[in-house]
């Protein structure tokens, strides 16, 4: 299976990366990590990309890492559909102080628009 993981730099995205790395090590799935230009994250994309490469290297998992420019939701869906990925993987959203889950704008766009299956990691 070919997985496309979108990561913007939020904590839930790195949790999704960790879960996906664990999974890929078992299944041998082909993984591409797309670093998104996330509007709500202050960390520069090159720092997020470096952190992603670190984690992959530490886990000895081989994956393509690319920086995806433009509006992250539409860019991710377009990439997944045009390149024939089998699944998009995203972080499961942020929790409020109360503990309420909320799916961010990227997750919401992808879930509502993608014809490729989507997994939100909780």
């Amino acid at each position: 299976m070919r997985l496309l993981l979108g990561i913007g730099g939020n904590e839930d995205g790195f949790d999704a990366l960790a879960a996906t790395i664990d999974r890929v090590r078992v299944t041998g799935d082909e993984l591409t990590v797309a670093v998104l230009d996330h509007p709500e994250v202050d960390t520069p994309t090159d720092e997020v990309e470096a952190a992603v490469r670190d984690r992959l290297a530490n886990a000895a998992v081989t994956a393509d890492v690319l920086a995806l420019s433009g509006d992250p939701g539409p860019a991710l869906v377009e990439l997944a559909e045009s390149e024939g990925y089998d699944r998009i993987v995203l972080g499961g959203g942020q929790r409020s102080p109360m503990g309420k889950l909320s799916v961010g704008p990227v997750g919401e766009f992808v879930v509502l628009n993608s014809t490729v299956s989507v997994t939100l990691i909780r």
């Binding site: 929790r95 409020s96 109360m98 503990g99 309420k100 889950l101 909320s102």
Partner: peptide, 13 residues
């Protein structure tokens, strides 16, 4: 005893 249908955004667990 909470009805799962009354949960909101994952709470209560």
């Amino acid at each position: 005893e909470f009805d799962p249908a009354d949960r909101a955004q994952g709470i209560p667990p």
